[in-house]
Write a protein that binds this DNA or RNA. Structure first.
Lengths: 370, 370
DNA sequence: ACGCCTTATTCAAACGTTTGAATCTCTTGA
DNA sequence: TCAAGAGATTCAAACGTTTGAATAAGGCGT
């Protein structure tokens, strides 16, 4: 109704409209301790007027004065990776009750964007930063600036404790072992492996877990059946890698009955490759993925995979960050923490018991004679 | 190095450190027009010192003074819907060059969160708001507050021009027709349809398009083969709907050779249902989806679908918003606009030419006799 | 010796809040 | 009658920037 000269309704507007000082209005509307001393009738009038004029406190002025932004930056390396979303949800859940706003930005795996946003985060005075795994986040000098300003950082999806950054990530070693053991228990012995890109930090520990499990079971991994995804990333590069490697496997003429893929998208690529070569998953070959993202659950057959407790990790990350902010306010100690999330095997339809050639032949025969 | 008493480095710190006034420092660092008059040597010293101390201007103080937040809110109804991501990317792309920060928030389909974030958006003085389709966004009184403050709104994924909100959405009618025509051209005549949830605004026009295309081709749609997804949303409710409806189709014993699903997740549910009943997609039944989200592309068979130009829509939305902000600044006219994005048929492997029973039987026979 | 222009820098007010201290008006007890 | 206290409200400074206006110091033409 009242047409403001410039944009927004302020405390002054309300003060003038109902004849009190700006201070009183502020005290009432921000529910400061002093507001107990304000007459109930005054409170009512002020509140009504605020409502009527559509007043919303200016976060900028407020933050400036209070020296708190009530903001925590969430820097995702690539939102189009379904991996990020559950983490973000967990973070939101943790931040909501504390009345912090997650400042969510998406670097789209671009170094330039990453730095750009990091600068913006600094300027917006985020009180904490949660980084969702990125190999870009190695040595940018902005990181120094963040620490110079004593802004707590937490990283999800990578272990950066050696750089004094609290970290949460899945136990890749355990996950790799879990995946391989599942295949072994189903009777598979000749297993092709697709390792992650060299630059990715998950790659090594996951591979180590696989090797450990193989050794424990006394199984040889055929080196000719070990592949490695290229570094080039992008939301579908895993899929394409899986697709082309599965073709290589088939043309190599090395026998294999199962494929352990680096992640779900890679697994989906393998399924596509095997299927288009006329093989059936899981009857002719089992496939297992890693992460448990949406596409793995809704494709057919559903992909057996290793689930990361992503939402829980996000939640925990937000709690750590909030706690670190508190500690800093009280100049308390802030130890660097590490959480290795336990992975979980999710069995779907892309894996099944291995049927030895001999038995398989007789089965086929019996089917024919029905 | 220099340990600030309270948090961040300010202009004053720099001014003191190199013996100039705050004004001069501000003029230099913000590259104000006056900075031409500042001696080159002075500029250098100030810039060096700023760099050295790790200065980053306080966005809060700056915005307060300039009365511009350089922020545009992006309110997504559910980020876990793969639908949202490309739109967000388009928006980012459009905002980047204009140096606006997208304030991305995720309502997670929860009314409460939605209102909460809308309040925060108001408080953070976003200069514009882009809403990514939500049925929640119907009549919240916060909407009034937004308009009271003359903040431009643009909505993606729904037509709200009747409420004077500029809107971008796919041409659902054309898309529905496109999908049906594709099936018809492949020779399908008995086609099951899964409509969207009643509450969703895409449902009706898409269905209208389907009916129109059917009429044009002189084809009857069997009412018993028309289903409707329930309103209850969530990222997987489409999948589950498709799964259970496909079972209903089969038990109904009505003949059909193709399914037109409301969206990709639903289509994936259908594929799962048909497959687990022993049917082959596309050999025994074709399936077509809508949206072209990631899971549709990476599942096997890849889902034939109707692509929405989501990224382009996001880009355009951001451009509209920026333009609207400019117009407002100049008190210019701001017409309500509408963009109906042209849908595009993406043919993958889930659809194929219908083979009539007669021909099919002889085929099967010939295969046996090989 | 004066005004005037140019170049380089600073003053001071303003943006909208918050908050410790101050003020003012009652009431109450001595 | 007055001091003390309680209750209700306001003052004024501060947060870190920006910016129109002011100042200061020189150079130049007259």
């Amino acid at each position: 109704m009242v047409q403001r000269k410039s944009g927004h309704v302020t405390l002054l507007d309300i003060a003038q409209a109902c004849g009190y000082s700006v201070s009183t209005v502020s005290i009432v509307l921000s529910e400061a301790p002093l507001s107990q001393n304000v007459a109930a009738s005054t409170r009512d009038r002020i509140r009504k007027m605020a409502q009527q004029l559509g007043y919303h406190p200016d976060a900028y002025a407020r933050s400036l004065r209070r020296r708190r932004s009530q903001t925590i930056a969430v820097l995702a390396y690539d939102l189009s990776d379904p991996f990020c979303i559950p983490i973000v949800h967990g973070i939101q859940e943790g931040l909501q009750p504390a009345d912090y706003l997650p400042l969510l930005v998406d670097a789209q795996t671009q170094r330039k964007l990453f730095d750009n946003y990091l600068k913006m985060i600094l300027e917006r005075r985020a009180e904490g930063v949660i980084v969702i795994a990125s190999w870009i986040f190695q040595e940018t000098n902005l990181l120094e600036d963040i620490e110079k300003n004593r802004v707590p950082i937490v990283i999800v999806g990578r272990d950066l404790t050696n750089k004094k950054v609290s970290s949460l990530l899945v136990d890749n070693d355990a996950g790799g072992a879990l995946a391989l053991r599942h295949l072994i228990e189903l009777g598979h012995r000749r297993i092709a492996i697709i390792r992650g890109p060299e630059e990715l930090f998950d790659t090594e520990p996951r591979w180590a877990g696989v090797q450990r499990a193989a050794a424990e079971a006394g199984i040889q991994i055929d080196r000719k059946l070990v592949f490695q995804l290229p570094n080039l990333m992008g939301s579908t590069s895993g899929f394409e890698g899986g697709l082309s490697f599965s073709k290589e496997m088939l043309t190599s003429r090395r026998p294999f009955t199962a494929v352990l893929a680096f992640d779900d998208l890679t697994a989906l690529g393998v399924v596509r490759g095997l299927t288009s070569a006329g093989l059936k998953v899981p009857d002719d070959c089992s496939v297992v993925g890693f992460d448990d993202v949406l596409p793995a659950a809704v494709s057919t057959p559903g992909i057996t995979t290793i689930r990361q407790p992503l939402k829980e990790m996000g939640l925990l990350a937000s709690e750590w960050t909030l706690r670190a902010i508190n500690s800093r306010d009280q100049n308390a100690e802030r130890p660097v923490k590490l959480f290795r999330a336990p992975p979980e095997l999710v069995v779907r339809m892309s894996t099944s018991r291995h049927i030895p050639e001999s038995r398989r032949a007789s089965l086929a025969k019996s089917r024919l004679t029905i």
